[in-house]
């Protein structure tokens, strides 16, 4: 078993050596694969980052529930507790009418006018903070439900822009998936075609090997390894390109996030992206090689 493994390893390294003997051709193929893989992965990272940003604008998703004037403070507390029990809601803060008045009264612009009134015109207000993972649709439903309560006068929630953002991100996400599928298909074709040419160039070697008793598996193996290496090297190049792109974007993105007061965690290439890109590279490289090999290799029979 160990012997078989070292055998395979030696074959794998031998094909790597073969690739390194034609550096330009290899670099061109690997370059195209790298770019094709980096593109969807990079866009994916941007969209993930965008979603993270949108999710982190917590205070922008807060909304206010104004209770009907004359609703008692006990009733308000009861309502606050019951709303707080909702699963989409992280936190509910009750602003009592008196403290709202005091706050406003401290403001020189309102103070005078408010003091002229006999009664406190402000209602009790609940400031509701949804959980970050709550979708705009859920918030909309929540708004309708809260608005239907007899004690509630008005729910002020502006989810329109959030919905739009989410919709745009969803379109982008789908678009990236489609692009990713197409680009992976392109990688398969590139590798397949490169190996098809390689098979043609090695026709003599393949024929002679078959005459000397080489099995199909023996003849196939180096080409499959080449597909593997193309995929792996292409994946590594894609990660390198992603790293460079993110380094260039780090500054501007940080400033953008700061402008929105979002806690910006950065757009690192996470383990998932790393494995995803390498996995997609290796899988499509092997698939391309397999396609080429199964279509073109069996056609080569020794002619004497």
């Amino acid at each position: 078993m160990a012997g078989l493994f070292t055998h395979q390893l030696r074959d794998a390294l031998a094909t790597l050596g073969r690739l390194s003997r034609q550096p330009v051709a290899t670099f061109l193929t690997v370059g195209v694969i790298g770019i094709a893989l980096a593109l969807p992965a990079g866009l994916q990272l941007l969209v993930e980052g965008g979603r993270g940003l949108a999710g982190s604008w917590n205070d922008l998703r807060d909304f206010s529930v104004y209770l009907k004037p004359g609703t008692g403070i006990d009733k308000a507390r009861e309502l606050s507790a019951s709303i707080g029990g909702h699963e989409e809601i992280l936190d509910v803060r009750l602003i009592e009418a008196d403290s709202a008045l005091a706050e406003f009264g401290a403001d020189p612009a309102f103070g005078e006018a408010l003091r002229a009134l006999k009664e406190n015109p402000l209602p009790h207000t609940l400031v509701v903070r949804p959980r970050p993972e709550a979708t705009p649709e859920q918030l909309d439903n929540l708004q309708a439900e809260l608005g239907a309560r007899p004690e509630v006068d008005l729910v002020q929630l502006d989810t329109q822009w959030l919905m739009r953002l989410a919709a745009i991100l969803e379109v982008l996400r789908r678009g990236i998936w489609i692009a990713a599928v197409l680009l992976v298909a392109a990688v398969i074709f590139i590798v397949g075609n490169t190996i098809r040419l390689d098979i043609q160039n090695r026709r003599q070697e393949i024929e002679v090997s078959k005459l000397l008793g080489a099995t199909d598996a023996f003849v196939r193996r180096p080409f499959l390894y080449i597909g593997f290496w193309y995929g792996l090297l292409g994946g590594l190049l894609a990660l390198l390109l992603l790293g460079i792109a993110l380094l260039l974007l780090q500054g501007p993105l940080g400033r953008l996030a700061a402008l929105y007061g979002a806690d910006f965690a950065g757009f690192g290439v996470g383990l998932r992206t790393l494995l995803g890109v390498l996995g997609a590279g290796v899988a499509s490289g092997c698939a391309g090689a397999w396609l080429a090999v199964s279509r073109h290799l069996s056609a080569i029979e020794p002619r004497v």
Partner: peptide, 16 residues
């Protein structure tokens, strides 16, 4: 056939 051919040595006019 591959296993069989491994027991047969071949020499060709164009040596291959």
């Amino acid at each position: 056939i591959p296993a069989y051919r491994r027991q047969v040595g071949m020499v060709f006019q164009d040596h291959k």
